[in-house]
């Protein structure tokens, strides 16, 4: 890679503002994410963290400011949006697997129809990722037959099958029963250690400590503090950060 390619940030947000009607939900967001960086975003509910990452693959539109993903500016241009979505994978809080398709079909749908991959190649790739998330034997089952933890792991594999450069996680473990959170976090740690650029909205602070390069705290639509995990957890600077950490690290 040439120096210039290496320098292009994976995700850039400059003075991004977003409103829902009159409600100013994202206020002056500035964020640069380098390739291979792992970011964890935390904050109280309603702080706009989900909205922030959903703006990155244009599931939400921002009204002011620039968002550039892998060098592609995110505007109303439909072609740009399609290009961005091909390079960005997303894992949802409620999995959103396609219930009428088998697990294998869930994973191969987008590669076949978007990247025009031949079926055999797509299926081999899918099995590779299913094995990586440790549930290859479920390939021919339907989502309704799997537990929540298994479904979320399938969802991660489904996003990975498109070979994205950036992975977004929107509270991936919040809808899971406690005993299934660990298996999903293990997959995410494995992914991080493989060098994937990740932005995670999550409350799992142990995960942040273990894997994140930066932890960002958001409150009321603005970025209040960001720091390395070590500094963030031992030495929070802003009083709002301190209050939040008190509440969740009891």
């Amino acid at each position: 890679m040439t120096k210039t390619e290496k320098d292009i940030p994976a995700v850039e947000l400059n003075h991004v503002n977003k409103w829902y009607g009159q409600f100013h939900v994202l206020r002056d967001i500035n964020l640069n994410v380098a390739k291979g960086e792992r970011i964890v975003i935390c904050g109280p509910s309603g702080s706009g963290k989900s909205t922030l990452i959903r703006c990155i693959n244009r599931l939400e539109e921002h009204q002011q400011g620039d968002i550039v993903v892998d060098g592609i500016p995110l505007t109303g241009n439909l072609k740009n949006i399609d290009d961005v979505r091909r390079e960005v994978g997303m894992v949802f809080q409620h999995f959103n697997l396609f219930p009428h398709l088998t697990i294998l079909e869930n994973l191969t749908l987008a590669p076949i129809w978007v990247r025009k991959t031949p079926k055999a190649v797509a299926e081999a790739n899918a099995m590779k990722y299913l094995t990586r998330v440790k549930i290859p034997e479920q390939a021919n089952k339907y989502p309704g037959q799997l537990s929540g933890g298994q479904q979320q792991r399938v969802a991660i594999a489904r996003a990975l099958c498109m070979n994205p450069k950036i992975m977004l996680f929107d509270e991936p473990t919040s809808a899971l029963d406690p005993e299934m959170i660990k298996e999903v976090l293990e997959v995410m740690v494995d992914l991080a250690e493989g060098g994937m650029t990740m932005l995670c909205v999550t409350h799992e602070m142990a995960f942040a400590r273990q894997v994140a390069d930066r932890v960002i705290f958001m409150d009321e639509g603005q970025i209040v503090e960001e720091n390395s995990p070590k500094e963030f957890f031992t030495n929070p600077q802003s009083p709002r950060t301190r209050k939040f950490l008190e509440q969740i690290l009891h």
Partner: peptide, 19 residues
């Protein structure tokens, strides 16, 4: 890389033409 916000970002009203 550390960053701490020192002043509130202004609460602006939505741009004309969007509401």
């Amino acid at each position: 890389m550390a960053y701490v916000r020192d002043s509130e970002a202004p609460r602006l009203s939505a741009p004309i033409g969007s509401i």
